[in-house]
Design a protein around this nucleic acid. Sequence first.
DNA 1: CATGAATGAGAGTTCATTCAT
DNA 2: GATGAATGAACTCTCATTCAT
Lengths: 198, 198, 198, 198
Amino acid sequence: MTDTPALARDVAEPDRRRQRILAAARQVFEERGLDGASMRVISQHAGCTTGAVYARFSGKEALYAEILAGSLDRLQQSLDRSLQEAGNHRGRVALQGFFRYYLEQPSELALGLYLYQGLGPGGLTPELDQQLNQAVLGIYQTITHALISDGVNEPETQATAGVAQAIGLLIMHRTGRLKLLNADVGRQMEAYLAMALP
Amino acid sequence: MTDTPALARDVAEPDRRRQRILAAARQVFEERGLDGASMRVISQHAGCTTGAVYARFSGKEALYAEILAGSLDRLQQSLDRSLQEAGNHRGRVALQGFFRYYLEQPSELALGLYLYQGLGPGGLTPELDQQLNQAVLGIYQTITHALISDGVNEPETQATAGVAQAIGLLIMHRTGRLKLLNADVGRQMEAYLAMALP
Amino acid sequence: MTDTPALARDVAEPDRRRQRILAAARQVFEERGLDGASMRVISQHAGCTTGAVYARFSGKEALYAEILAGSLDRLQQSLDRSLQEAGNHRGRVALQGFFRYYLEQPSELALGLYLYQGLGPGGLTPELDQQLNQAVLGIYQTITHALISDGVNEPETQATAGVAQAIGLLIMHRTGRLKLLNADVGRQMEAYLAMALP
Amino acid sequence: MTDTPALARDVAEPDRRRQRILAAARQVFEERGLDGASMRVISQHAGCTTGAVYARFSGKEALYAEILAGSLDRLQQSLDRSLQEAGNHRGRVALQGFFRYYLEQPSELALGLYLYQGLGPGGLTPELDQQLNQAVLGIYQTITHALISDGVNEPETQATAGVAQAIGLLIMHRTGRLKLLNADVGRQMEAYLAMALP
DNA sequence: CATGAATGAGAGTTCATTCAT
DNA sequence: GATGAATGAACTCTCATTCAT
């Protein structure tokens, strides 16, 4: 028989519903923002009840944290992959990788920015914040190391400036500011890199 | 006639309670975020009832829009004032003005960023959005014109890049990212301006 | 005109709905117990929405505390009144007063007994507990002083024993135990007093 | 036949998991109260799933009823044992036995008191109530017979009074009332017995 | 029989908004 | 025009119970 035994199937397909809940949450977070997303709506999008969600995630915050952590993970892996293939101009490759990742996954940038509010009262659990900060730090270090191997002056300052430029441009892009100014987000980033890392 | 015309009277004696409501809303939005601010709390901070708020503003969104409009207005005036006093390096003065305004009024940057999610289906009324866009456009033009009068190459691209850098740095500052990286927000902006507008 | 002005009416009739909510809560607490009583059901019994309840009471616990405090207050006043009219045998009068009050207001004994669970985790706020303990203490002192003025030996021990007897009998009465034993709750209390305070 | 009859086997090898569930439920009821105890938590304490509990008990109420029945059974056996060893003063021995049993098993007194609210419409099944009443009746009769064999006057009244005193004191003890009054629960019971059964 | 995921109802609580006074 | 009490829907989260596997 070609049927996989139940156990093996369970191992091979670890909780599809969990994945569907995460996907639904990602979508709803993107569409409605962090506060606007309700557990009920997320559950409905996932095709289950709130109870089924709470059986897998301890609450809304845990759901958000897992999604954000996954996003940072994918970004890190994406950077690592790009740098493995890269020869020279590693700093440029890293910053382009950062920029393009969020350009192509716009909802994930929004996800990270919700932390803006989170700094105020009612933010994330300290442990989660710590864990997410670690992931963020790893990404910055990857970029900084790439700049160092290029022999760039003041690599930390350059890394911060590059990331800031990418974030600023992406936000202006997403909020329609760039369209208002007839500017192209890709060209802008290219122009920045040409100026900063000639 | 000895009577002050109606318009003049309105200008001379604008509804003081209206101003107090706006001030209260600004404070509460800053302290609790857009979703965390309740109309009741705003009313209490303003020393009046919810009814008194609804007599002047059609709802929470209208309050938000008016505050944002006022913020952009003050930013525009702040830039204009700085440029009147400035001689050379007008572009640098304009970008520094933009950066410093939001550095000193951090809640107003947050206000503007809520627009990020506002772009979605639950966003602002089209008319309000249009009006706010006009204000934003004015600010960009002010910066661009300053760069033009400096004789800078590609002034639009430079204006956009400078604004993006400022916004990116401010967000990283507010979300604690810069502290994580041991970076100073003011130094970073200085470094950017030194590089981009030498 | 015979109409009371609005202000005077407000003072004379201080929030009837508040009284109706308290009455409804008393009834529902009695019928369903502390955990079984839901704010929604209490609201419906009071003929209003939960919001109207929360406008007057900070939560379920506050509702319960106010009802219990009122009950203890009425008991204290009832004891004081009985003792003012009493000549000799003041201890007997006090204990009879305690017993009869709860015999006639059976729901209020239940109210106090919910504290049994409340001692565990999730009980009352320390401040409320403190306040209620003060009221309980006052009642015990009233009984003890009555026994002292009778010249009874070991008045504290007697007060405690008398109160314990009353509480025990009332519980057995309410839970149907006395009916099972063909015992009459009033006779039992009389017999106890005849033996303990001859 | 060499086979053990079914009944004997059942007695010899009673479903061990059933016992573990009962023990877990007892503990959880004690720690969290009747309403605070969830079937999930009980199941986890018993090291099984909720399904395994429902295979043996029709629901939460049945669990509660069986625990209460077991408690009354153990009390009865405890009284019987004490009286077998006793010579004179059998009534005092019986009442002391009743008092000490619940003093040492405080959760079981709580268990019985939940019946207070159970008297209402949401109470126990009539059959269960009947069965529990039988057990209670047996305990009272044991105490009454002990008093009769002592030659005490009005043994039924004395039995009821003694049980009421014990219950009242135990409740005041458990709710912290006795601590408030600087009274000792054991001394109080001793003082009562000295007075009532000299 | 055992499992444990799923359910659906319901818990306490908060909120933007309305409207009789 | 101001009030502030009332609304009703929405929120996050929990629970006893069921049932396909």
